[in-house]
């Protein structure tokens, strides 16, 4: 069943799919690393971003890749407002409450989409949707190759922000020691909201790269949440390069596991890795020791 001629293209497919996972996980890992919260609304936010990309293409004719400069700032603003106005306020800093609040937000967003856009699955057609790139005999979907590049660029930009700007220094300070950050005069609430905003902005980028080869409906986000968590854990919570590599690893494991064990059972490989990393190396493959 496992033929070598298939293995090479399968590896490349896994790598490109992994890039999409990495894009989604980059935002999640930032939010986790700084705010220490598990954001259950991540999938719903991705879904909203996908609708944004869809309607820009459908009603204004804007190509998904050209929509990047629109979708990213909008998602950033939405994230900032959501953290500042809802999550930070309603959760009173308690873990169990953050859980319920993000859960509540995801229920609201999912059903808002259902109400506004109906439950139809929507796809867009671009000139390159069905195009492939020939890489040493393997035909790899062009939108996914673009997504691969997009993930690299997004990770680089994030690293630049976090390690090269004043905001980044504040973010890192809040992530490490929020009381201390407060004492030295950092507006912690603002930094938290900025981090959440940047996290959702990553989803905006992910949506632009994902939609040409995928679809959108109100529940589309659910299919990515668990994968994104796995990537975050594998890479080490809060680590961008970890999320990037973690995404690639998960993509490849899913792809090869699918070949080997069948598409349905193949999913198990991802969760076994997830469990093994949590047990034996909870700081992740690339995370610093907590």
């Amino acid at each position: 069943m496992l033929e070598l001629s298939i293995l090479f293209p399968a590896l490349l497919n896994g790598l490109t799919m992994g890039a999409v996972y990495a894009l989604i996980a980059l935002g999640l890992t930032l939010i986790y690393g700084v705010l220490h919260i598990i954001n259950f609304a991540h999938g719903a936010a991705l879904m909203m971003a996908l609708y944004g990309v869809y309607y820009l293409k459908d009603s204004a004719g804007i190509d998904p890749y050209l929509a990047l400069p629109v979708v990213i700032p909008v998602m950033f603003a939405a994230g900032y407002a959501l953290q500042r106005g809802v999550i930070g306020r309603a959760s009173h800093g308690k873990d169990e409450n953050i859980l319920l609040v993000t859960l509540g937000i995801s229920i609201v967003l999912e059903n808002l989409a259902l109400f506004l856009f109906r439950s139809d699955t929507r796809t867009i057609d671009t000139p390159y949707t069905l195009s492939t790139l020939d890489i040493a005999g393997a035909m790899i979907s062009l939108p996914k190759v673009v997504a691969f590049g997009g993930a690299l660029v997004t990770a680089a930009v994030l690293l630049l922000i976090v390690y090269g700007t004043d905001l980044g220094r504040a973010i890192r300070a809040c992530a490490k020691e929020r009381q201390g950050a407060k004492l030295v005069g950092i507006d912690v609430d603002h930094v938290f909201a900025m981090s959440f905003g940047i996290g959702l902005a990553c989803l905006g980028a992910a949506a632009c790269f994902l939609l040409p080869a995928y679809y959108v409906n109100p529940t589309v986000g659910n299919g990515f949440v668990l994968i994104a968590f796995t990537v975050v854990v594998l890479g080490g919570m809060g680590s961008f390069s970890g999320a990037l590599l973690g995404g690639f690893i998960i993509g490849i494991v899913e792809s090869v596991g699918g070949l080997w064990l069948g598409e349905s059972l193949g999913q198990i490989g991802i969760f076994l890795i997830f469990i093994a990393v949590l047990l034996f190396r909870p700081q992740g493959l690339f995370g610093a020791k907590a």
């Binding site: 059903n111 808002l112 989409a113 109400f115």
Partner: peptide, 8 residues
């Protein structure tokens, strides 16, 4: 959807 929006 309205019912679940209010619920959330």
């Amino acid at each position: 959807g309205i019912n679940l929006i209010v619920y959330g």
